[in-house]
């Protein structure tokens, strides 16, 4: 067998040599498919009786925001070429506990700061290990998962921590301008995340490292700094989820955020962020989060029970991962 000319991308594809290659070079089939799925789902959703009611939409917006913030953090990690973290859900729980604890002593602002800082620090420590020692990100995150739960258990005794004043936010603040506060927070995270990625030196380095770690080393970028920052931001966004959950339920416990890692990576991949890193945006993640949440609601409205959403989420992720492989690497 001779090596095919197509596999060597430095050779330009000459017209006529392979029509199919010519077409696939210009149209990204995966993105085309993705847009088609989005459109189909949007139409189905609008046509589904009960979907377009205000309470239903508000509920949808609220629930997707929790996973959404974790997904924003996960996007950072995936883009930087570190695939995913298994500890962001646990980070959210830790942030929730820190938030409620500090809130009870020093008030809301200090609580938010404590929650975000807790998330950022827990995650940055992992980033430092991964970035400077090049330790396996998956294993580090799995070990951190066990450690975080262990420490949380030690500190809280697996008890639920209640907000002393009974309620974090006055009723009026739960829906400023008629939009759930969770959604506003999620949109803020998205905007901050996208700003970081598109308009800061840090963001450019995330893409560079994600699309060529060795090249970044050779270029003389201090990769470990950027990777630590990536994980710090990821932890901060996950911390936001913890704060939102605690605000919603006016308490905090270790169970918060369990399984969010999987939902978040599913959304990130479905939206079209490349699993090998270096390609994607927060908008894609937003699309992925919306798609997964909408599909879930639509399935529910059509009488499919909740369990189907898990299966469909899994199949979609598998499909997306497989389809991504067909692109040039």
């Amino acid at each position: 067998m001779k090596p095919s000319a197509i596999s060597d991308m430095s050779i330009p594809v000459t017209p006529g040599s392979s029509r199919l290659a010519w077409i696939t070079d210009r149209i990204d089939l995966v993105d085309g498919l993705r847009i088609a799925v989005f459109a189909a789902l949007a139409i189905t959703a609008v046509l589904t009786p009960g979907f377009l009611s205000v309470p239903s939409l508000l509920a949808l917006l609220t629930t997707l925001s929790f996973v959404g913030c974790v997904a924003v953090g996960m996007t950072m990690i995936t883009l930087s070429g570190h695939i995913m973290s298994f500890s962001l859900g646990a980070t959210a729980a830790a942030a929730a506990v820190a938030f409620v604890h500090v809130l009870n002593i020093w008030g809301l602002a200090a609580g938010v700061a404590a929650g975000l800082a807790t998330g950022a620090l827990i995650s940055a420590a992992q980033g430092l290990i991964i970035g400077s020692l090049r330790a396996n990100p998956i294993i580090v995150s799995i070990a951190s998962l066990a450690l975080i739960y262990g420490i949380l258990n030690l500190l809280t005794g697996n008890a639920t921590l209640d907000v002393n004043s009974g309620s974090v936010l006055a009723a009026a603040w739960r829906r400023p301008f008629g939009i759930p506060v969770e959604t506003l927070a999620f949109l803020l995270c998205l905007a901050v995340g996208q700003f970081l990625l598109s308009f800061t030196i840090f963001g450019r380095r995330v893409f560079l490292i994600g699309s060529g770690m060795r090249s970044a080393d050779v270029l003389g970028l201090r990769v470990w700094r950027s990777v630590t920052a990536v994980y710090a931001w990821a932890g901060l966004f996950a911390g936001m989820t913890g704060i939102l959950l605690a605000t919603r339920y006016n308490q905090a416990n270790m169970e918060y955020g369990v399984g969010y890692d999987y939902d978040a990576i599913a959304a990130v991949l479905v939206g079209g962020v490349a699993i090998k890193g270096g390609l994607g945006s927060m908008w894609r993640t937003l699309a992925g989060v919306c798609l997964m949440a909408t599909a879930q609601v639509v399935l529910l409205l059509y009488g499919f029970r909740q369990e189907w959403q898990y299966l469909i989420a899994g199949l979609i992720v598998l499909l997306v991962v497989v389809l991504q492989s067909r692109r040039r690497s």
Partner: peptide, 17 residues
């Protein structure tokens, strides 16, 4: 990692269904 992540989510989903 990517493929078995999909496998993980799918098998969990199957178990739920």
């Amino acid at each position: 990692i990517g493929v078995t992540l999909g496998g993980l989510l799918t098998t969990i989903g199957l178990a739920y269904v």
